[in-house]
């Protein structure tokens, strides 16, 4: 009986004690959305916005911020702002492919393990255990290093390495769905297992999946930039935040902006994605209750 006291859902947007909107938080989430949209825009149109990310001007060399170069130039005289803008593409595309790929692979395995149970569950879980036992970053470095590096190789390795956590997440959520009466009703109707998993379990996991995509994106961004920083991702000289961070380290005393800007972009993008993911997760899981 639903007559028992039901606490209202705790909302990030509202203060749980006064019930008043949390001004600061809404503003923060708004800013995060704007920033995420900006980075996404730059990933698509970055090369049109920033005219020249690769033009060298050895005569100028390093320069501090000025009107013509708002973030100054690096040691080859390249405009840092343009490079940061163009670098948005590798920062977004790789992690996006990784989270989607890992989500598809890991999610499918998780759904299979959770719904079928039995030996499929056993086999998949042992695979997950094995992957968790490996030190992810180290394996990525070794594998990408041995196979000769490259952006898409790094992406592929990271998909494989980050899918197990999705598998666990989706498997646990599937197990929680399985004994629900609407799933059992579908079984009593005699619907095939594939259909129940796809039509009845999966739609109820969507909020979770969307949230985990956003959170996973931040992780993938950090992993990709780390590989690039170590010279294993993109090729030398590419406008990529990780690569720029590595190459501009030395310039910290000559043009601090060149060394700090890519790092700041990485941090702010990852943090924004995390907050947006949290916020979305709450919004989506409240959708049914709020009415």
């Amino acid at each position: 009986m639903s007559s028992q006291a039901q606490a209202p859902p705790i909302d990030l947007v509202l203060d749980e004690y006064t019930g008043a909107p949390r001004r600061g938080f809404r503003l923060l989430i708004g800013l995060c959305w704007v920033f995420v949209a900006l980075v996404a825009f730059l990933a698509v149109f970055g090369e049109r916005v920033a005219a020249d990310a690769y033009g060298q001007d050895l005569a100028t060399g390093i320069s501090t911020p000025s009107v013509s170069h708002p973030l100054g130039t690096d040691d080859l005289g390249r405009d840092v702002l343009s490079r940061v803008i163009v670098g948005a593409r590798t920062a977004v595309v790789g992690p996006a492919v990784i989270t989607l790929g890992a989500g598809l692979l890991g999610g499918a395995l998780g759904l299979l393990a959770g719904y079928r149970g039995g030996w499929s569950d056993n086999v998949i879980l042992r695979w997950v255990d094995l992957m968790f036992a490996l030190p992810g970053h180290l394996v990525a470095i070794v594998v990408v290093g041995v196979l000769g590096g490259g952006y898409w190789l790094a992406v592929a390795v990271l998909i494989l390495l980050s899918s197990p956590s999705d598998t666990r997440l989706i498997r646990a959520a599937t197990l929680e769905q399985r004994p629900r009466p609407y799933i059992e009703a579908a079984r009593v109707l005699g619907l095939p297992g594939r259909r129940i998993a796809a039509q009845h379990v999966l739609p109820n996991l969507l909020p979770l999946i969307i949230a985990s995509v956003f959170l996973g994106f931040a992780y993938a961004l950090l992993a990709m930039t780390a590989l690039s920083f170590l010279g294993l991702g993109v090729g030398p000289g590419t406008a990529d935040w990780g690569r720029m961070l590595a190459e501009s380290r030395r310039l910290i005393f000559h043009n601090p902006a060149a060394a700090l800007a890519p790092g700041a972009m990485i941090v702010v993008t990852a943090a924004s994605m995390n907050l947006v993911g949290d916020w979305l997760a709450e919004r989506l899981s409240d959708r049914g209750r709020a009415q």
Binding site: S2, P181, Y182, I183, V188, H200, P203, N204, L206
Partner: peptide, 16 residues
Amino acid sequence: VQMIFQDPYTSLNPAH
């Protein structure tokens, strides 16, 4: 043979 469950709040899939 079909079945009716106890809790009407969980016997229908909220997603559909």
